[in-house]
């Protein structure tokens, strides 16, 4: 048995799967770091991803073009982001409660949209509908490097977006005036307000940015990996992505490492399942979630979230 496990780590396929499993978590989590740093709890990533997944399948199926699927996924994610901004920023509603509502609502809404588009709502029995899915793109030169090439540079295009997103978010956050505004709004919204920064504009923009990348992450699940759709197919990945943000202490690189850890756990359980060791698969499916909990317990300690985290901004009158 141990030698079987060892064989997993000796096989390149495992590392390819790690990259693949990490990508949707990374896009959602790192894409949400800016919104989080502006003081908003982006617990609604699950809804953004799920709507992205269904948006991807609809765009790809209706237009017969997978890129229209990617576009629609991003748009759907941004729409959820806009809806969340309305509630969390403009209305000032409780962010966790609003997120839970959106997450539950998205489960229903995505299923309805899927049924409306593909079965016109009439057929009771659902058949698995196949739509065009994203192609593998091997990066010239880099893809030919032994070991690293196949593991890192022979993937779906969305994976490469993930590679770029980490340094981009880091750069925005620490090397641009936008990042300065985002951090100021997250740490002391009143101070930002008194120097003429619009707290709500910053929060709207970053939440919609998070929506775009979470939507893209969702499309990776539907038209990236499978080319088909299942109800509630994100299966809590939005929550795991949120956990990665906490694990990474709101730092882009740390958050990336968090998604890598959870992605690796996911890839590992899939490989172990394939080995047929007689372990009930339900236990293996639990693995990423157990890793998540252990990881969270181990990083509990120094408070490092933005000072205004989760609280809506209101000017004090009187």
């Amino acid at each position: 048995m141990l030698s079987d496990l060892a064989s997993i780590f000796l096989n390149l396929d495992f590392y390819v799967a790690v990259v693949r499993m990490t990508t949707p978590l990374l896009l959602a989590a790192v894409g949400s770091v800016l919104a989080e740093r502006s003081g908003v709890v982006t617990f609604s990533m699950e809804a953004m991803m799920l709507m992205g997944a269904v948006g991807g399948i609809i765009g790809s199926g209706v237009f017969g073009n997978v890129w229209m699927g990617v576009l629609l996924a991003i748009v759907f994610g941004m729409l959820v982001g806009f809806a969340y901004s309305l509630m969390a920023v403009s209305v000032g509603a409780h962010q966790i409660v609003t997120s839970v509502g959106l997450n539950l609502g998205a489960v229903g809404l995505s299923a309805v949209l899927y049924a409306l588009v593909f079965t016109r709502g009439s057929e009771v029995i659902q058949t698995v509908i196949k739509v065009p899915k994203l192609p593998l793109v091997k990066i010239p030169l880099l893809g030919d490097i032994p070991i690293l090439g196949p593991v890192l540079f022979n993937h779906l295009p969305v994976v490469y977006v993930g590679y770029v997103l980490v340094p981009v978010v880091w750069f925005i956050l620490y090397r641009t005036s936008w990042g300065l505004k985002i951090r100021a709004v997250g740490e002391h919204p009143h101070a930002a307000d008194t120097v003429g920064i619009s707290v709500s504009k910053v929060r709207y923009a970053t939440i919609i940015f998070a929506g775009a990348f979470s939507g893209l992450a969702g499309s990776f699940l539907s038209i990236g990996l499978l080319g088909s759709y299942m109800e509630n197919m994100t299966a809590g990945r939005g929550f795991i992505a949120y956990t990665a943000i906490v694990f990474g202490k709101w730092q882009p690189v740390g958050v990336f490492l968090g998604t890598l850890l959870f992605g690796a756990a996911d890839a590992l359980q899939l490989r172990i399942q394939a080995l047929n060791l007689g372990i009930p698969y339900q236990f293996l499916v639990m693995l990423p979630y157990v890793v998540t909990m252990i990881a969270l317990i181990s990083v509990v300690g120094r408070a490092s979230w933005p000072a205004s985290y989760g609280s809506p901004f209101k000017r004090e009158e009187g």
Partner: peptide, 17 residues
């Protein structure tokens, strides 16, 4: 004070400009 504690003096001074 309307200063953002984790930012530097210069960052606070130019914030919003």
């Amino acid at each position: 004070f309307m200063l953002v504690p984790p930012l530097t003096v210069a960052e606070n001074v130019v914030l919003g400009l």
